[in-house]
């Protein structure tokens, strides 16, 4: 188990290095840097810009800049934000927490809904309920995530039932911890709902497909022939047999949710990684972008690692390999 996990974590670490090198190269290729906007500002002289370039180390060759970044990451700073004049980590941590606050509940809710619904749909294969289900998920899949978020905002604005963005109300803090928590939860409803709607369909369709595949196998037919109750057949036998690809999907769904989450955060003004990443890309605030992407990669690797652990626990074949 330990060896298996260590190998997986090692892969993850290698991936982080790869991603960071790729990011540096991509940024190098992108035209303009953080200081190019200042060039358009008629108040700032070229001498000032040259001095700032040296101060930020932007005049150094790429390997040197990468090495400096590695050293700073080892200290836990993850580079320096040109725009904010602080270590990138101080910007990233509070926002990462806010992003997780959205994605973790959304992840759990998505799976809690998708698994039973997908299994039932598989059981109803070919009947009208299944067709309705397939049509519905196809339609949802076609909806862009931005549109879902905007629709949610529109509903909130028209009905006045939910806040139209932000994380807490202006006065929430003055009213004690419980009121603050309730306010926070109230603000979470729409973004989490939008995230669930955005990610649910893919999971649903996967669950349905894998369960159907299992249902068509000969041992399931045999079980059916023995007269096992339908419910027990679906959830007691078909689902565990179909679990293997689904658990792998779990890791992937973390990545999917994160990318949708970044977008929904921007639309719904949720103070997570999303708005920061967008701002930093536009401002070419190199290390904040790299930090934010690395953080997303870490979440992704963590999700996959969790998937691996679950797989290890569920699938004896993997245990034997390891």
């Amino acid at each position: 188990m330990i060896r298996y996990l260590a190998r997986r974590a090692g892969h993850g670490l290698l991936m982080l290095f790869g991603v960071s090198i790729l990011l540096f190269l991509l940024f190098q290729a992108a035209p303009g840097d953080f200081l190019s906007e200042m060039k358009m500002n008629s108040q700032i002289s070229p001498e000032t810009i040259t001095m700032l370039r040296a101060q930020y180390g932007l005049d150094q060759p790429l390997p040197e800049r990468y090495w400096r970044w590695l050293k700073s990451s080892a200290r836990g700073d993850f580079g320096y934000s040109f725009a904010y004049n602080t270590p990138a980590s101080t910007l990233l941590w509070p926002r990462a927490r806010n992003t997780l606050l959205l994605s973790v509940p959304a992840l759990l809710i998505s799976w809690l809904i998708a698994v039973p619904l997908g299994v039932l749909a598989a059981g109803w294969k070919g009947r009208w309920a299944d067709r309705l289900f397939s049509g519905g998920t196809s339609a949802l899949l076609a909806l862009p995530d931005v549109l879902i978020a905007l629709l949610a905002l529109l509903v909130a604005l028209k009905t006045g039932m939910f806040p139209v963005g932000g994380m807490t109300s202006i006065n929430a803090q003055d009213q004690g911890t419980w009121a603050w928590l309730r306010d926070l939860g109230w603000h979470m409803v729409l973004p989490v709902a939008a995230l669930v709607v955005g990610s649910l369909t893919i999971i649903l369709r996967h669950v349905r497909a894998s369960v159907i595949e299992v249902l068509e196998s000969s041992y399931m037919r045999a079980a059916e022939g023995h007269g096992l109750p339908r419910f027990k057949l679906l959830f007691g036998y078909a689902l565990p047999a179909a679990a293997n690809p689904l658990i792998s999907l779990f890791g992937l769904s973390v990545a999917m949710l994160l990318s949708v989450s970044l977008l929904i955060e921007v639309v719904m003004s949720w103070p997570g990684i999303g708005p920061l990443l967008l701002e930093s890309i536009l401002a070419r605030d190199l290390f904040v972008v790299i930090g934010a992407v690395m953080l997303s990669t870490v979440f992704l690797i963590a999700g996959n690692l969790l998937g691996d652990v679950l797989l290890y626990a569920f699938d004896p074949r993997i245990r034997r390999q390891a």
Binding site: L150, L153, A156, L157, G160, P163, V164, G165, G166, I170, V266, V267, M268, S269, P271, P275, L278, E279
Partner: peptide, 20 residues
Amino acid sequence: LTFIVVPTQDAQVIRFQAGD
């Protein structure tokens, strides 16, 4: 006097409409 972050203009319009 509070400055809130609302990244897009469309969202700013909605927040203004809602009285936020």
